[in-house]
Nucleic acid binder design. Structure first.
Lengths: 252, 252
DNA sequence: CGCGCTGTTGAAACTTGTCAAAGTTTGTGG
DNA sequence: CCACAAACTTTGACAAGTTTCAACAGCGCG
């Protein structure tokens, strides 16, 4: 998880600083999160809006389906999953969110959250009151446009998942999933080839439309073929190109 | 160019043309489409923005993946599908759009369309230049909020499809699909129990993550069980509750 | 009328799910 | 700090569901 080694003093100072106050202008995720492309004075305004930060322990719900929607959330640290449950017991993980990504966009439509957001490890989020965000985005074109792009990107992402669920077989799905995680870790400065999965086989399976046993078997097979090594939740991609070929390979 | 008196016929034609002119304020879809909840004067402003209407024949592309994104489109009449193709030949239908629904939201993210939109029958759409829409929604709160809700609803819809693809078996998927169509036809004043499918078995299959043969078999099975009658693309839902039970039925 | 496209149906092959058992890790409380 | 329980993971054997391949039927169009 650690990126760079810091002296004990530096760690302490950093913690103290972070505990001080939420501020997009100081956040090292600002190039990944909502503030992309904002000028300094605009960032200041956004800072005023993003006033509350919230800590969650592993397993805590950030929100639940059916709750009133008021804010969207930006993941500041940690890892989340969102899922939808239906009465008969079925559930579908609709996404995994990492730092710099937004949670809660689905709640805008009916002013109710439509899914559950659960922390997969101890995490921290910034709450962004939605009506205030709309107000500010009427003033700041860049923010408005960026927010629209974020929502649109979510739609595009969902189409990718539909493609995955609709056309790929088990091993292709898992390969696509791992490469996607890899890219996202890389964009955040972490190793793209070695990382810890924060979610269980069951959660991966739910996201990929597979049973946990199938996920487990696919991992074992990849390991046998030398594409990766996996020990519990620690994964090391030994042959990312090989994984990529698996996906783009003609079916049949 | 000198101004000339128009012949009576030309005047008549011109009037006819102008009455044809796109105007949200006159559109009988205005309670389903972007204008929901706008006051009369606000509707006028939206009218100015939605100036171009476009006709398409069955099979025509409204846009293609990779093209520059400039406008979103509202379906005024007809029927569309959107799909994503990847190199190796796989394709996934990501949605079917009927009158009052918007097309092109996925293009906002990168200012490029990310999927293809194809008319499944002769159709008409209203083009809404996106940058102008952003401009107007900075002035009209209701429009801004409504647009956000439309995008959010698309995300929620996609989650529903993910649930369908991830957790349902073939017959459940088809039942869910048919009931969804039924609701949407009903909302538009058409019969919710008797309608024509505008899409082929193959297109349904692509949307539902099934092969066309599986779709065909599921239709036959439903017919055998008296849940519906189907002749080619004409469907009559004989027992909508039965179809509904199929979906919410505990799996196994 | 025949051709092409779309849809239906059957049988076999394949993929994934189900059930069961055992191994591993993690967390908790003594 | 260890021991035990709970949760998670792996693996095997078998069952079920879906796809594949193939043949044929129905409809619309030139």
């Amino acid at each position: 998880m650690k990126k760079t080694r810091l002296s004990p003093e530096a760690v302490k100072a950093k913690q103290a600083f972070e505990s001080m106050k939420t501020a997009c202008s100081n956040c090292n995720l600002r190039e990944l999160c909502l503030p992309i492309g904002l000028a300094d004075d605009e960032l200041k305004k956004l800072d005023q809006l993003v006033s509350t930060r919230k800590r969650l322990k592993r397993g805590d719900h950030l929100y639940r389906a059916g709750q009133a929607f008021e804010s969207i959330f930006a993941v500041r640290s940690g890892f989340f999953k969102t899922d939808v449950l239906i009465e008969d017991g079925r559930d579908q993980v609709t996404g995994f969110q990492m730092p710099g990504e937004l949670l809660g966009l689905d709640g805008i439509s009916n002013e109710l959250h439509t899914c559950n957001a659960i922390a997969l490890e101890d995490s921290e989020v910034c709450a962004i009151p939605f009506s205030q965000l709309e107000g500010l985005s009427r003033q700041i074109h860049t923010l408005q446009n960026h927010f629209h792009k974020v929502m649109s990107r979510e739609i595009v992402r969902d189409h990718g998942v539909m493609m995955l669920l609709g056309t790929m077989r088990a091993e292709e799905r898992l390969a696509a999933f791992l490469l996607n995680l890899s890219h996202r870790f890389k964009a955040r400065g972490y190793s793209p080839i070695e990382f810890n999965l924060r979610m269980s086989r069951d959660e991966i399976g739910s996201y990929l439309g597979l049973k946990l046993e199938t996920v487990s078997r696919a991992f074992s097979r990849f390991q046998d073929e030398g594409l990766l090594s996996v020990h519990q939740r620690k994964v090391c991609l030994l042959d990312p190109d090989g994984l990529h070929q698996l996906i783009s390979h003609q079916r049949c």
